[in-house]
Design a protein around this nucleic acid. Sequence first.
DNA 1: AGTCTACATATTACATGTAACATGTCAAGG
DNA 2: CCTTGACATGTTACATGTAATATGTAGACT
Lengths: 247, 247
Amino acid sequence: MKPRAKLQSERLVDKVYAILRTHILQGELPPGHPLSVPELSRQLGVSRSPVREAVLQLVADGLAQEKARKGAVVAHFGLEDALQILEAREVLEVASVRIGATRASTKDLALLHQVLQTQAQTIQAGDLEGYQATDLQFHKLLGTLSHNPVLERMVGLLKDQSHLALESAVRSLAQLERGLQEHQAVLEALEARNPKQASEALLKHSFVCYLTYPRGCKKEGVLWKPTESTPCTILTQKPSWWLPTSG
Amino acid sequence: MKPRAKLQSERLVDKVYAILRTHILQGELPPGHPLSVPELSRQLGVSRSPVREAVLQLVADGLAQEKARKGAVVAHFGLEDALQILEAREVLEVASVRIGATRASTKDLALLHQVLQTQAQTIQAGDLEGYQATDLQFHKLLGTLSHNPVLERMVGLLKDQSHLALESAVRSLAQLERGLQEHQAVLEALEARNPKQASEALLKHSFVCYLTYPRGCKKEGVLWKPTESTPCTILTQKPSWWLPTSG
DNA sequence: AGTCTACATATTACATGTAACATGTCAAGG
DNA sequence: CCTTGACATGTTACATGTAATATGTAGACT
């Protein structure tokens, strides 16, 4: 038995989990990539036990998918999965803010003010990275307004999942020669003088744009209005955010 | 090495998980009870590995709580935790039904009709157990209306958690000699001729009743109206369902 | 009595051994 | 050509070994 290094107060499981999670969210471990326990344990220089537990944790958090006796892979989501995740995320974030409106402390609001001030400075300085950082901070703070750790945790999980889902969905389409085939489909429909097929083909392509910047496109629904008569074939039903929520 | 029984298509982890989950939800493993991996492995006649993974799964699903190097226990929730879980559950169930209203298939609705018909029969027959069974079916079906597996899973997890939380919160107070101390607190306040303290004491006690039947009490808010001027001391802020949702 | 220490016990956290299972290759046989 | 099956490879799923760590308890000391 080889004597291992002295036990820290931190557990190896947590370290391994953090490493894998970071690599997945950074995109270094791409969607669909197998998470082989022996392989990872070799690469990380630890035994298989903590790696196994970390992978299980990733599966439980929705960042990996597992099939019995076939091992786990980095979660790869299709368009439908991505939309479902975004829908769930929206439900929870909206609820979180709605509750927060009556429950947030003045300190919470002060913090939000402070972040926005910082963000204003980044704009003046033309600091794009800083802007994005404060944007993340702002949204993270929004999630805490409800003072409900149960909601907070689920919002956090869905944030990671949607991040991965966007990357996954975009990439899975991007790998189809960056949408070339979609362009070809549009052209084919045009050549066939088929208006419905052409508009549907373009709509399908536009989903990629929507998925890339889901938050931004929602406010300006202009591009989507004309499509109501020809619902997208990807979804059997329109998602909830298709129309402005009535309540 | 002792040769183990032939491998089934089912995994031991899943069996152990199912057993533990059932026992927890049935109340045979009470909240706070330690989930010792060696002990359970002895009782179940399997090795520690599958037990460990099953316990981790329980922790991930919120039915157990773990502290580093101290092991896991069956989740025990306080009043505040229970309210937070119920709040999250309400958010998700309401959203699920709202989405389902536009997305449910006619088959879904037919199934719901069928369940209600069965339930009507149970009422006529005076079959209380059957009534409760159809009640569960109905709520379970409601969760599937959104056709969003992400939402469905979270609703399911929160359903289990709230079940445990109610048992846990009620039991934790019930163990305080079944609310005797709360009654005493009310009496003390009365003897002190302190109206505010007395009403707060009774309100605190009433929470137990609310927690026991959270769904039923909400519709008739009569008992709660007078308390608005004297917010409950348990929560720093009123929960979202205190007032009818505006949106 | 009250507190400390030393020991006993039990458990976690990690490491490792191994049979069942999945998958790819490759050659023999239809 | 297509299918089949033996073989090689790699992994999962389960079992078990062990040092570090937490906890309870008896006895020594103040």
